[in-house]
């Protein structure tokens, strides 16, 4: 099975380890992973700020980059969901809409791909420690990926999961929201960090780098002793 990695601009720039773990994880299950080098950013920062025309330029670049792929897999619910939005965003350009539809249909979030396409529920990984999982909003509410991360994490040997209080609540990231409404965003992430603290977990696990950077940045500022991990890092841990 040929899989193209959609790295996301955040993982590419800030957490390349997440990309490495994603590649290794997929290869472990027999996927032939390639990395289309002309991929950039999904366009979400512009799209969610109302700059649709600017976002469309990014979308078209991404469509060109992934058109030839059999499957596209990315370690982010939010960025994958953005690709799912492409056909709708390009509805006024029939040719591009069709091309967008083809890419959207073969694009999956990592845990979704493992569970729904590869039918893997136990990745045979081992990770010692207590952790809490934050289900990010776009992954759960928009992309509809609710169970896959939980199923996979529950099967990780040695991992003790503690439920995060008010886990459905947004961490306050919201892309450009964290910049435009920084003060409100700061209050939201503070509350989230408090809930993480209440669990007593050593690790915070999530499936979206943006949210993790937000929560991690807050806990770093608060000198909270919680390590932040992307789910790919835990699933690829031996």
């Amino acid at each position: 099975m040929k899989v193209s990695l959609f790295i996301t601009c955040l993982c590419d720039t800030f957490t390349p380890d997440v990309g490495k773990d994603t590649v290794q994880l997929l290869e472990r299950y027999g996927c032939d992973v390639d990395f289309p080098a002309n991929q950039t950013c999904c366009g979400q920062p512009a799209f969610n700020s109302g700059y649709k025309q600017e976002a469309i330029k990014a979308m078209k670049q991404m469509i060109r980059a992934f058109e030839a792929s059999q499957y596209v897999v990315g370690p982010s619910g939010s960025c994958v969901q953005m690709i799912k939005e492409y056909p709708h965003a390009l509805k006024d350009e029939p040719e591009w809409r069709e091309r967008a539809q083809a890419v959207a249909e073969k694009t999956y979030e990592l845990t979704q791909f493992l569970v729904e396409v590869l039918h893997v529920e136990d990745v045979k990984s081992t990770f010692q420690g207590t952790a809490t999982y934050h289900p990010s909003c776009h992954m759960t509410r928009l992309l509809g990926v609710k169970d896959a991360p939980r199923i996979l994490l529950e099967n990780v040997e040695g991992l003790h999961l503690i439920e995060l209080p008010m886990k459905e609540d947004c961490c306050g990231f919201g892309g450009t929201f964290a910049v435009k409404n920084a003060a409100v965003s700061g209050q939201m992430v503070d509350e989230k960090a408090q809930h993480i603290d209440e669990t007593g977990a050593e690790y915070l696990i999530g499936g979206d780098m943006g949210c993790l950077m937000n929560m991690g940045g807050c806990m770093s500022r608060n000198k909270q002793d919680v390590k932040v991990l992307h789910i790919a890092q835990v699933l690829n841990s031996q």
């Binding site: 993982c11 720039t13 964290a178 910049v179 003060a183 965003s185 700061g186 940045g217």
Partner: peptide, 16 residues
């Protein structure tokens, strides 16, 4: 605005 209430990570030494 972001860094008024939280840290921002430095870009990685070597990107993906």
């Amino acid at each position: 605005g972001w860094t008024e209430s939280r840290d921002f990570p430095a870009p990685a030494k070597k990107n993906f």
